[in-house]
Amino acid sequence: MYYDGSRTEPTLRAWGLCKSFGTGEMRTEALRDVGIELYPGQFSLLMGPSGSGKSTLLAVLSGLLHPDSGRVLAHDQDLWAMTERQREEFRLRHCGFIFQGYNLFPALTARQQLEMVLRWGKGYSASEARRRADQMLSTLGLAKKGDLRPMQLSGGEKQRVAIGRALIKDPTFLFADEPTAALDWKHGEQVVELLRAAAHDAGATILVVAHDARMVPYADRVFHLDDGVLAEGVERPMAMFADSRDVAAFGAI
């Protein structure tokens, strides 16, 4: 199933977002009156130079960092009007995160890293968590790596486990910060494909912070943030950049 974002209501709306750091002369404005709408089933890319405020915007939209002003409505709920506990519950129910570092527990196997989220987050039984973790690992092409620990996995495999950890609880939002930064393009491309599939197949709303232009052809929408000001780039760049393989993959569009 392919979700066509343009025909549905946005799952995440934000407007008037401002955020600054420091005081006096050291004060920097990371976000200046930023507004954005994100739709389900869309893989959106947030680009911009270093220090442009990309990660800050991701943190504010995902409920991790309080903005100075502005509102964020996720599933029509005002994220920043919630209590800390409510926000945590919202993240538990709806959000997945992928960070630059893999941040996997060194002592736990790939399977345990995923199981942990289901058992602790969703209260699944050990056997059910294991079944789902194995299912996810096989989707990620890691079916035979379930018993390996991070040290025994390559960078690409580790990032795929991290993606699995973000996706295993079927989030409606997936926020990723430079998920391909530590990977060569071959592995980076796999990661991008997985994220795009999560949007298109599962209908998740995906926002990825990146500065690698090679990701642009895979994105449904591209946003540029420069000096705290957001602008939307070309919509559906797929149509312009896609190679024959991509076109085949999207034959159903």
Binding site: E88, R91, L92, R93, C95, N103
Partner: peptide
Amino acid sequence: LKEYAVLRALGIP
């Protein structure tokens, strides 16, 4: 701490 932070981000109590 970073791994715990990821769990917190994911809303794990």
